[in-house]
């Protein structure tokens, strides 16, 4: 589904990714772990197409298409979802308005029918209920006045409504207490663990992986994948720290 080959990228002229290669197939959940400054968030932003993150070499294909040639919104319409480490606050725009605009924009780009207001609200209610977010919160401006945990749950509600093929979740576990962590983990499994979807979990800690069992674990250090393995690798990292493995 996603093929990353020898990816190089820089921010403000500073090289961050230095030859990263990775492949994800449908039905797989991959975790990328690594120390601070390894380039984890840069990888997420490069895949999402954030301005300022410049690809200087390599290639990325998504279901056979050149991902890097697409605009951010085209990537979303193609089925890529980026879960933000720091979800952005947008005063004056309600969650409902935001999501309906987003969903219908994606459907238009894919040549699908737009959802009516009623259909959309039904969908939104289902997803919000599943993640313990009230409809009142969905009517409030996007992420404004939300706690850290509420913002992350809101990301999952968005993922549930948009129903992407590939989710790249950047530190979705950061700032969550244990209950919220479980809710978010269940959300990821429920929405994404199907044979036709894939997830790239980017995380510093092993704890989210207790709830979302990865099929593969990769260690990212200094801009490259330095080790890959099964779920046991995450435990090894937890025990021994990044120093030993990245060295």
């Amino acid at each position: 589904m996603l093929r990353i080959e020898d990816l190089h990228a820089e921010v403000d002229g500073k090289p961050i990714l230095k030859g990263l290669t990775l492949a994800l197939n449908a039905g797989e959940i991959h975790a990328i772990m690594g120390p601070n400054g390894a380039g984890k968030s840069t990888l997420a932003y490069v895949l999402g197409g954030r301005p300022g993150y410049e690809v200087t070499g390599g290639a990325v294909t998504f279901n056979g298409e050149d991902l890097l040639a697409m605009e951010p919104h085209e990537r979303a319409a193609a089925g890529l979802f980026l879960g933000f480490q720091y979800p952005v606050e947008i005063p004056g725009v309600s969650n409902v308005q935001f999501l309906r605009t987003a969903l219908n924009a994606q459907r238009r780009q894919r040549g699908e029918e737009e959802l009516s207001g009623a259909e959309f609200l039904k969908l939104a209610r289902t997803q919000a209920d599943a993640l313990g977010l009230s409809m009142d919160m969905l009517k409030r401006p996007v992420n404004v006045g939300f706690s850290g945990g509420e913002k992350k749950r809101n990301e999952m509600v968005q993922m549930g409504i948009i129903d992407p093929k590939l989710a790249i979740l950047d530190e979705t576990d950061s700032g969550l207490d244990i209950d919220a962590l479980r809710t978010v983990g269940e959300g990821i499994n429920r929405i994404m663990r199907t044979p036709d979807k894939a997830v790239l979990l980017i995380t510093h800690y092993q704890r989210l992986l207790d709830y979302v069992r990865p099929d593969f674990v990769h260690v990212l250090a200094a801009g490259r994948i330095v080790r890959s393995g099964g779920p046991e690798l995450a435990h090894e990292l937890e025990r021994e720290g990044y120093g030993a493995i990245a060295a």
Binding site: G49, R50, P72, H73, F84, G92, L99, T101, A102, A105
Partner: peptide
């Protein structure tokens, strides 16, 4: 905010209008 909207699939022109 613009990138957040775009990453959710809203084309830039629409994202600008919304904001």
């Amino acid at each position: 905010a613009l990138f957040y909207l775009e990453s959710r699939g809203v084309p830039p022109v629409e994202a600008k209008a919304l904001l």
